[in-house]
């Protein structure tokens, strides 16, 4: 099965572990992900102003590239890219007036009408591959690993682009179950990590991220799985600051969901680029005999 793939900027540098592990898993599942030959940054956040269309131009260009590459579906891994592309697509599909304005503005591009389908890897796995198929490829189930699925905001809100129910999502639960992990449900799964406030109000972002992690551990989680390089930055890269600042803060291994998938599928550990994770992430896998050495 061939499908267009939009990586997003961070997945080429600091978040490359998300890309490499995902591509390896796709290979295992017989999915041929064709990275768009030409693409630009999607803008990461969707413009929420009714009178601001210029910030929607970037994601629309990417959707045009999908069509130009001869595809009608595009898959994303970063949930912020997913949200931005999907919302821009909705606008182009349903708002005739704005569609015309945007198309007229981009006089160097072919007109676009929203006819591409934007998918996240998770809903693609659920709806087009099926958990059974995924399960067939699991050779090293994550038995006894207590993982909390963290959805964050952009996969679930707003409704038009949600890949699951906003209040009680299941997709990542099913995903982790398929991999053989023990899924730890916790209310923080759908709370915000503070996202770009790491620039504006870094202390506030640290606190909300910390709240999520302590919520997860207090429900018995040993690790957290997530889908977004900004969540990863806030919760994994900035965890040292939490450990220093908050009494009772505990070390929590953090993984991209695709890294766990790769491990469960027996994909060589190098594809996971664990050097970009917290050290505790590899240690936990070793203690569960999922990674040797």
């Amino acid at each position: 099965m061939k499908i267009a793939y939009y990586p997003g900027c961070t997945l080429k540098t600091k978040g490359k572990s998300l890309e490499t592990s995902a591509l390896a898993c796709m290979g295992q599942l017989g999915i041929e992900a064709e990275e768009l030959e030409r693409w630009n940054c999607c803008g990461a956040v969707y413009s929420l102003a009714d009178d601001d269309l210029i910030h929607i131009v970037a994601p629309v260009r990417d959707l045009i590239r999908v069509k130009q590459a001869g595809h009608d579906k595009v898959i994303t891994l970063c949930s912020m890219c997913y949200n931005t592309l999907a919302r821009a697509n909705e606008l182009m599909r349903h708002d005739e007036e704005k569609r015309k304005t945007i198309n007229d503005f981009m006089d160097e591009e072919p007109d676009y009408t929203g006819d591409v389908q934007v998918l996240h890897f998770l809903d693609f796995l659920r709806d087009e591959i099926g958990w059974d198929k995924v399960k067939e490829k699991v050779t090293k189930p994550l038995s006894g690993m207590k993982v909390a699925p963290y959805y964050g905001c952009t996969l679930l809100r707003p409704k038009e682009v949600a890949i699951d129910r906003a209040d009680q999502p299941e997709v990542m639960h099913s995903f982790l179950e398929t991999l053989g992990a023990e899924v730890v449900d916790f209310p923080g799964a759908i709370q915000c990590c503070g996202t770009y406030q790491v620039l504006g109000n870094p202390d506030a972002a640290l606190k909300v991220s910390h709240d999520i992690l302590s919520d997860a551990t207090s429900h018995g989680a040993e690790a957290l799985a997530l889908t977004c390089p900004l969540c990863d930055y806030n919760m994994s890269k900035r965890q040292d600051q939490m450990l220093q600042k908050y009494e009772g803060a505990r070390e929590v291994p953090i993984y991209y969901f695709t890294q766990l998938m790769a491990i469960a599928m027996g994909i060589p550990v190098e594809e996971c680029h664990f050097e970009l994770n917290r050290e505790s992430s590899v240690q936990l896998l070793k203690s569960k005999n999922l990674v040797t050495g």
Binding site: G8, T10, K12, N40, G43
Partner: peptide, 29 residues
């Protein structure tokens, strides 16, 4: 990281350089 991909740069370049594209490349490193 303030680029919005409006493409005004490429349109205005007298040397036909794909300016927006190289900025996109730099954003992804």
């Amino acid at each position: 990281f303030r680029c919005v991909a409006c493409n005004a740069c490429t349109k205005v370049c007298p040397m036909d350089v794909q300016v927006m594209d190289y900025i996109a490349a730099l954003k992804r490193g």
